[in-house]
Write a protein that binds this DNA or RNA. Structure first.
Lengths: 125, 125
DNA sequence: TCTCATGTTAAAGTTAACTTTAACGAAATG
DNA sequence: CATTTCGTTAAAGTTAACTTTAACATGAGA
């Protein structure tokens, strides 16, 4: 069991964000201690890990919320959930390829700068 | 020379965004025809291409603007500009590695769904 | 027992990056 | 010549994803 501060440190997410996610239904309702303070347990941290993976790969919070709704509906939605993950994965892969092309563009620009730095202005095509 | 509509189609960027970028100084002031309408020429499109590459790889508009300021200052800032591109590139590469790790997480989740789908619940560790 | 760190909530505020609107001008088309 | 179509500006509006604030509660240490 972990306090909100511990989870904040483990995940590098501000406590305010953790509360926000719970309020929005992106995390399940977290258990509390006698004083009403949140205590996170393992399955909730597992869950948070997947949320972070989806978020950091560009899934919107709205879509994550939709996915969470399916999780709440139980095993009948397994196939649908797999499909969502698959499509998101393909999406991420497309974006990564785009990024690689953009990096090429940036590399070429750097190469131009290198040529200019060595006073080779005249040899540019 | 290209009208704003042509650039919009070439780049998939709304005309409003092109005007916005110019207003913000992210694009240089674009030439106009007799009627005051924008006419984009090759170097401006080249420039737009780099802006899009930087933006789509996660550079903020503020940082792009800073970079543009350096370009405007001429060749004395060549080294600084190269450095900015280099650091950005390294940043993008770090993020791509993070993304690959996140994809692994998503893959593992999909594998779990596959096991569950085939009723192999009992064989999960 | 005092006080200080840590937690709680609901509600309001912030920020980036556009997008929309309103009011208008120019130009191509039937 | 009338009417769409395409363009212009400045200013206001939008959206996502938090973050901050205010007002209060709890529990540990001096």
């Amino acid at each position: 069991m972990f306090t909100i501060k511990e989870v904040q440190e483990k995940f590098g997410l501000p406590a305010s964000t953790l509360r926000f996610y719970e309020k929005e239904g992106i995390l399940p309702p977290i258990g509390r201690d006698s004083g009403g303070r949140r205590l996170y347990s393992e399955p909730e941290l597992e869950w948070l890990q997947l949320v972070v993976a989806l978020r950091d790969t560009g899934m919107t919070m709205d879509h994550i919320k939709n996915y969470v709704e399916l999780v709440k509906q139980g095993d009948e939605t397994l196939h649908q959930r797999r499909q969502i993950l698959l499509e998101h994965k393909q999406d991420v892969e497309r974006k990564m390829n785009q990024t690689l092309e953009h990096l090429e563009k940036i590399n070429r620009k750097m190469a131009v700068y290198d040529l200019l730095a060595h006073g080779k202005k005249d040899f540019l095509i």
